[in-house]
Amino acid sequence: MSRVTIKRPILRVRDTTTRRFDSLAAEEPLEIRLDGTPLTVTMRTPGDDFDLAAGFLVSEGAVGRAADVSAIRYCAGALADGTQTYNVLDVRLAPGVPHPEPRNFYTTSSCGVCGKASLEAVRTVARWTPREDPIRLSRQTITALPDRLRSAQRVFERTGGLHAAGLFTPSGEAMCVREDVGRHNAVDKLLGWALRGDLLPLRETVLMVSGRASFELVQKAVMAGIPVLAAVSAPSSLAVELAAEEGMTLIGFLRGESMNVYTGEHRLDVTPATGLGSAGGRSPG
């Protein structure tokens, strides 16, 4: 199995200089095939690859329940001697499950499946909508999520180089946390975990991410039926637009006791001290 971290020699410069080994977050390509046909290549941190592949198919609207996938397996790698590299896997759909529209694309660890210029690209394939989800969250629950997410990041503590995504209950209990060099990969790993456990749609849950809230992440949450997305950094304008259209609660700049609520404030039990009445969208404080 590929390593999650890799040690490399470095020159550390502080008050003095020393030579040491540093742990780096591994980044390797993963080719995902669908019934033997290449579908996509993504740069990811090895680990939870089956969840990543399944979650990617959830994000693309190809599957929506565990029974849609009959098998996931690693294929022989590209080495001449047939050595297993664990960087190619094949997803087999169950009989009768239609294939998504064929398209080859490359996904980097810093950017999701880019190029969706229209919100209709999401609306036409979404199986569930978070609009009517009855979840209600307290301010205390929301503000505790960043620390709870960070405490579950085992590889980040060694490398400082990974994003994280966590799925939480309305009371703030962690259901699942995944790490990856790519924000979108971490979320796909969560969605794949949920699909394989037959937990979709993820009603009455909160998705907490360690970076910014992009359109891609809101789209993935919508595809899984998640009603609340919280991020420690800023959302994009298109992310806010999509969240509003789909009835999702979108929170940004969640740091300490502060947050910006961009959409769906009806799901939150907060006091005026959160700054909901102030203008502007920059980081509080």
Rank of each mutant, 00 (worst) to 15 (best):
R148M: 01
A54M: 02
R255S: 12
D48S: 13
V177E: 01
R44E: 00
T169A: 03
T42C: 10
V155I: 12
L34Q: 11
M208I: 05
T263E: 08
N87W: 13
M1Q: 09
R178S: 07
N87S: 15
L217I: 08
A273L: 10
L202Y: 05
D269P: 02
V261L: 05
S109F: 09
G225I: 03
C111R: 15
A231Y: 07
G285L: 08
M223V: 02
A80L: 13
V13M: 14
L149K: 04
A221G: 00
P46N: 00
G182P: 02
L52I: 04
T83Q: 13
I32K: 07
R73W: 08
E132T: 14
S236C: 08
G280F: 10
N260F: 07
Q140G: 10
D180R: 01
D90Y: 05
P29V: 08
R14K: 15
Y86C: 09
C111V: 15
L242N: 00
A144I: 07
K189P: 02
A194S: 02
D147F: 09
L89R: 08
R148G: 00
K7V: 11
A76T: 12
T143L: 09
S59E: 11
P100W: 02
L250S: 00
I142P: 05
G182R: 02
G211F: 07
A186Q: 03
L11H: 13
A273W: 04
D81T: 04
V69R: 01
T263C: 09
R148W: 01
P227N: 06
T17V: 15
D147C: 09
R154V: 12
T5W: 01
M1N: 12
Y86G: 08
A243D: 08
G77V: 06
Q219M: 02
P9W: 01
R139L: 14
T263A: 12
T45N: 03
C75G: 07
A230P: 11
T159V: 09
I142N: 03
V222A: 07
L57T: 05
D35G: 14
V206Y: 00
E157H: 14
I6A: 09
G47D: 01
V4G: 06
T274D: 09
G192A: 00
L250V: 10
I251E: 02
R148T: 04
A71R: 15
H163N: 09
A186W: 00
L190T: 03
L57Y: 04
H99P: 06
E132W: 11
P9F: 03
A213F: 04
R196L: 15
N260Q: 15
S258V: 10
L276Y: 13
S171R: 15
L79Q: 11
G172I: 09
S283K: 14
A62N: 10
S283V: 14
G252I: 06
